[in-house]
Design a protein around this nucleic acid. Structure first.
Length: 310
DNA sequence: TATTAGGGAAGTGTTAGCAT
DNA sequence: ATGCTAACACTTCCCTAATA
């Protein structure tokens, strides 16, 4: 490694990251409680160590150079590592504290807060940053290493991922209480072919599971509408648009209060699993490790938490 | 808005002297 | 040998004021 780089200080990187975010020397100075010349000087010295310019002006606007983008990514790693160290040190003193960064696919968003609450009961010093996104967005976040742990169904086949299932994710058929199929027992899947069926959007885990399931069972839907989210499928079913196929976790509240009825198909529910996922080889923080152990070792508790949603 | 100059305060590293 | 402390020099940080 070039000797100069090793003389880079954490202070310089802090200022650098702030400047990258603010794209203004004076705003950075304000944010870091420095004077503006101090920021300017720190950056000039950092540029000297790096051996290349980090910022350039085009007109009045400040832009990052390629070197700055590389440094930004590297400094992100460095500060993440320090955060992990901080957690490790606190774990050595007997308490686990720090932030768990979690991204979840939208269908599991209702259950997640209950998982977090139970986890926090055990580790009261832990805080959370929760990101709720679509399945494809969650996959992108996994690739960009933006979170500690991801919860999703239908984990993409990718060798670079480590995952394990921690909870059943039943996909059920629901409809408005006045739907003609409500009340009939042991329905055959072929019945779906003569009714309007509401499905999640392509790319969602539930949709992927349904498509594979129908193909396997040789069911060919005649009338189908695609909705943008589990929430919308549920609301469309309530509104009487048709039969919705959704994760039981997203329909439970409306099943309980009677706005939705569950249809009794012999081949349903379709059992999939919720999985905890992270990039293989990722250095997990102690908090992330503890959360994964919690999901892995406390199946009974997790299952109990999920019951109101099943 | 960014840079430069000059200076005080704080931090860091080196050395020597002493104790264990 | 090893560890601790104090003294000193050097470096770094960040300020104000002036300037491009």
């Amino acid at each position: 490694m070039r000797k100069e780089l090793q003389r880079m200080t954490l202070r310089q990187l802090q200022v650098f990251r702030s400047l990258c975010a603010n794209l203004s020397y004076s705003r950075t100075a304000e944010e870091m409680a420095l004077t503006q010349p101090a920021v300017s000087l720190q950056m000039r010295q950092l540029e000297e160590l790096v051996g290349q310019p980090l910022f350039e002006y085009v007109g009045r606007k400040l832009y990052l150079t390629d070197a700055a983008n590389s440094l930004l990514a590297a400094s992100g790693d460095i500060f993440n590592r320090l955060e992990i160290l901080d957690m490790q040190l606190s774990a050595l003193q007997g308490t686990l504290h720090g932030e768990l960064r979690l991204a979840v696919a939208s269908s599991i968003q209702y259950l997640t807060p209950h998982l977090l609450a139970a986890f926090r009961q055990r580790y009261p010093q832990v805080s959370f940053r929760l990101e709720v996104s679509t399945r494809s967005e969650v996959i992108r976040r996994l690739r960009d290493n933006l979170d500690d742990v991801v919860l999703m169904g239908m984990v993409p086949a990718d060798r670079a991922l480590d995952f394990f299932p921690f909870l059943n994710n039943p996909v059920i058929a629901v409809a408005a209480p006045d739907h003609p199929l409500v009340g009939r027992q042991k329905l055959n899947l072929a019945e779906l072919e003569s009714h309007m069926v509401l499905l999640r959007e392509v790319g969602s885990g539930v949709r992927k599971a349904c498509d594979e399931f129908f193909q396997q069972k040789r069911v060919h839907l005649q009338q189908m509408m695609q909705m943008g989210s589990g929430e919308t499928v549920v609301q469309s079913a309530i509104a009487g648009l048709g039969i919705g196929l959704v994760s039981a976790h997203s329909a439970s509240a409306w099943l309980r209060n009677g706005q939705l009825a569950r249809l009794d198909f012999t081949d349903l529910p379709l059992f999939r699993s919720w999985c905890a996922v992270h990039a293989r080889g990722k250095r997990l923080s102690p908090v992330a490790e503890a959360f994964l152990s919690f999901l892995r070792d406390e199946r009974a508790l997790v299952k109990r938490l999920a019951e109101p949603f099943g």
